[in-house]
């Protein structure tokens, strides 16, 4: 666990790629803003939720350019204890976490694999965006986390998902997926801030080789999607070894194309060089989102098309 005083040293490796580095460090001292996604599959009328929550003393305002997302103040309000949560009308999530699914652009009738799905913030977002009419295969290697995913699917009233517990690298072939989302396990550096209770996985003693796992997952995802189909790879970390270098690996192994994508949040082009290593030039079409510029968790998103 990195303490706040250690943060400048820990993140100094990224000084060159994080814009306004001192603003970034200062921002880590703030609590993460609180947002939720409204579940339009279940909630007949948004005012039911907004007025219900406001009666409990919070201020709710819609997020510009992000339909169904709302910001909540104060940011320490326990959304998870509310009736609105219990009835599945809301899903608390940080804004940038919604971006990978926007890049995936799921459509009704498609067959979609969410390879690392638990606890399901993105699976349920896909269900909502498709009106619960795409076939969603929601997979996670960990059964304990899958239990949380199953509970969220039930809470939100999703009928279009089935769940599986495979190691993503071994997910069976045979289903012609139109799209695959790889929201990969990562070091979580983008989530880091004061009072952060998780841990930066990368720093853990005897740490697992995350880039190797991520490469395996992305390669499998690519082989699972049909020709012409789309794979979205995302992480909530700043580390290029887990982001551009993983996608670069895929581009060298397979015939893939990075697809440029518009996002409703401020972002920067992906890196085409890191620590002296020259990467595929199209990596500039991937996107980096920084906490201090977006008031959210740092994210990386790559939209990839299978050519052959």
């Amino acid at each position: 666990m990195v303490t706040l005083t250690e943060a400048p040293r820990y993140f100094s490796r990224y000084r060159r790629i994080i814009p306004d580095f001192s603003d970034f460090l200062a921002h880590l001292r703030q609590d993460l803003p609180l947002y939720f996604r409204l579940n339009n599959l279940k909630c007949p009328d948004p005012s039911l939720v907004i007025e219900g929550l406001e009666r409990q003393g919070v201020k709710i305002r819609p997020v510009e350019h992000m339909p169904l997302f709302y910001r909540v103040e104060p940011r320490d309000f326990p959304l998870g204890n509310t009736e609105e949560y219990y009835l599945g009308y809301i899903y608390p999530m940080t804004l940038n976490s919604a971006l990978p699914v926007l890049a995936l652009d799921p459509k009704p009738g498609e067959q979609i694999l969410d390879l690392c799905a638990a606890p399901g913030s993105k699976t349920t977002q896909i269900a909502q965006l498709t009106g619960d009419k795409a076939v969603i295969v929601a997979n996670d290697r960990r059964l304990d986390r899958l239990t949380a995913l199953v509970a969220n699917l039930k809470r939100l009233g999703v009928a279009s998902a089935l769940t599986t517990v495979y190691r993503g690298e071994e997910f069976p072939f045979g289903i012609p997926f139109d799209k695959v989302l790889v929201d990969a396990p990562c070091s979580g550096e983008g989530r880091y801030r004061q009072g952060y209770e998780g841990e930066l996985l990368y720093q853990k003693e005897g740490h697992t080789n995350l880039p190797a796992i991520q490469k395996g997952l992305l390669l499998r995802a690519f082989d699972l999607v049909k020709v012409g189909g789309v794979v979205v790879y995302s992480t909530c970390t700043i580390n290029p070894d887990e982001n551009e270098l993983v996608v670069d690996y895929l581009l060298r192994k397979r015939q893939a194309k990075i697809v440029a994508q518009q996002y409703p949040q401020k972002h920067h082009e992906g890196l085409t060089e890191w620590e002296g290593k020259i990467l595929h030039p199209d990596l500039r079409y991937t996107a980096r989102f920084f906490p201090h510029e977006t008031e959210s968790v740092g994210f990386f998103v790559a939209k990839i098309q299978r050519l052959v």
């Binding site: 009738g109 067959q111 619960d132 009419k133 795409a134 076939v135 295969v137 899958l146 199953v150 699917l153 039930k154 009233g157 999703v158 009928a159 279009s160 998902a161 089935l162 769940t163 599986t164 517990v165 495979y166 069976p172 045979g174 289903i175 012609p176």
Partner: peptide, 24 residues
Amino acid sequence: WLFVEPPDFKPLQGLRVQTVGLLF
């Protein structure tokens, strides 16, 4: 259980599933 109608059940039935759809 309520489940969205897939284009073809066969390939999906090859999966070892934990849950399918919504308890109806």
